[in-house]
């Protein structure tokens, strides 16, 4: 399973970013192998409409689960249609820590 975490930096040891559409990076973690890959978000400085566009980007990478802080209304609508599951992480930890917490069932499901 592929887990996407919104992240301030380019690796699994970077801090989780609370913003969804304007997250500087999306880090994709393979839950079986533990391997991770970071994608820089081209939308970070865009003015509007970033939510639905970020959903397309993440969906295109083949994620099954997303871990992030807050979602806007349009991103929510796109995510609901996407079939991906979304979980909220409000802590200040790293991407790896958020994934670990998700695996233990410790995160609240948003979608």
């Amino acid at each position: 399973m592929k887990i996407c975490v919104t992240s301030k930096g380019a690796g699994a040891d970077s801090a989780v970013e609370q913003r969804f559409g304007r997250s500087p990076f999306f880090v994709f973690v393979d839950s079986e192998s533990g391997e991770s890959k970071a994608v820089e978000n081209p939308l970070v400085n865009e003015s509007g409409g970033v939510g639905p566009r970020a959903v397309q980007l993440i969906s295109g990478e083949g994620a099954d689960v997303i871990i992030t802080g807050q979602l806007g209304g349009n991103a929510t609508a796109a995510l609901q249609a996407s079939g991906m599951k979304v979980f909220a992480y409000s802590g200040t930890g790293t991407v790896s820590e958020a994934v670990a917490q998700y695996k233990e069932g410790g995160l609240r499901q948003l979608i």
Partner: peptide
């Protein structure tokens, strides 16, 4: 689309 009016899913 710069307005986010289209989202292409799988």
């Amino acid at each position: 689309c710069r307005y986010g009016a289209l989202t292409v899913l799988k």
